[in-house]
């Protein structure tokens, strides 16, 4: 090939690259605020410095007692029921040995070892899932809630490897195939295949002044409040009772406390 034509092609290619990357830089600026109006917090939203949950497990007799909570949660968020190992869990039950594997001993009292224990996302103060997410699809809100933006999730499942509590579920398939039509809660979206999801501490309910669905259904047996407010219900309950958290040695600082 002719030498000068060759260098011409090289320079042309480089310029095209430079120009196109310049254009992408400009479109990046176009992402700045587009709306002519302004934004504000919702009017009657509940707010806290650090949301936390205290589950008084003494007041739940057996797994049946938790059923209305699970149903309320799954109905409110259109959580599908998928049989098998590719299932979705937001609020679920398991045995003591599985929930608190580090605190297990063979001679545990009957009530503790036979009971079902409720599980949900711990909304850690130091969440590993947020640390590993490559797109900030999962992130920590100022009020301590570990939230998710399903629009941004690429489905790499790094967060599932990172979460020490098994709180995250991946949509291996289209969840709508496993939901009724119309969906249980038409005011709330479903998810799509290929994204990760989990409990959100009902951020959408807090925003309109409602307590989380499970807390409401628990009728006082689950407390929800501001951990940084010494006068809050959760702080009072924690001060008055012995409570534990899951896998505290990992330093994640879970926001879900169990009174046992």
């Amino acid at each position: 090939m002719n030498k000068s034509r060759r260098s011409f092609l090289k320079i042309a290619g480089l310029s095209a690259f430079a120009l196109s990357s310049g254009i992408t830089g400009l479109t990046g600026e176009a992402h700045a605020k587009i709306a002519p109006g302004s934004y504000a917090h919702g009017g009657n939203a509940l707010s806290a410095k650090r949301w936390a949950m205290v589950i008084d497990t003494r007041k739940f007799k057996d797994s049946q007692d938790y059923e209305p909570l699970i149903e309320a949660c799954h109905k409110a968020h259109n959580v599908p029921h998928i049989p098998g190992r590719q299932n979705i869990k937001w609020f679920w039950l398991d045995s003591y040995a599985h929930v608190f594997p580090d605190d297990m001993n063979a001679h545990l009292d009957e009530r503790t070892s036979a009971a079902s224990w409720p599980l949900l996302c711990n909304h850690c103060t130091n969440p590993p899932c947020v640390r590993v997410c490559p797109t900030q699809a999962t992130y920590k809100m100022e009020d301590g809630i570990v939230a998710m933006d399903y629009h941004r999730c690429i489905g790499c499942r790094f967060c599932m490897a990172g979460c020490p509590y098994g709180a995250r579920s991946f949509n291996f398939m289209d969840p709508r195939a496993h939901l009724t039509n119309p969906v249980p809660n038409p005011d709330f979206p479903t998810r799509m295949a290929g994204v990760v999801e989990k409990c959100t501490f009902c951020a959408e309910r807090l925003a309109v002044g409602q307590l989380p669905a499970c807390v409401e259904a628990a009728k006082g047996r689950i407390l929800f409040g501001d951990l940084e407010d010494p006068a809050s219900e959760v702080r009072k309950a924690l001060a008055a009772n012995y409570s534990i958290r899951r896998k505290p040695s990992l330093g994640t600082q879970p926001g879900v406390y169990y009174i046992i």
């Binding site: 590719q86 979705i88 489905g155 490897a161 579920s169 291996f172 398939m173």
Partner: peptide, 15 residues
């Protein structure tokens, strides 16, 4: 089309 359900991966073995 179908999602990663065609793989042997699961909620527990997610990679």
């Amino acid at each position: 089309q179908e999602g990663l359900t065609v793989t042997g991966m699961s909620r527990d073995v997610s990679w």
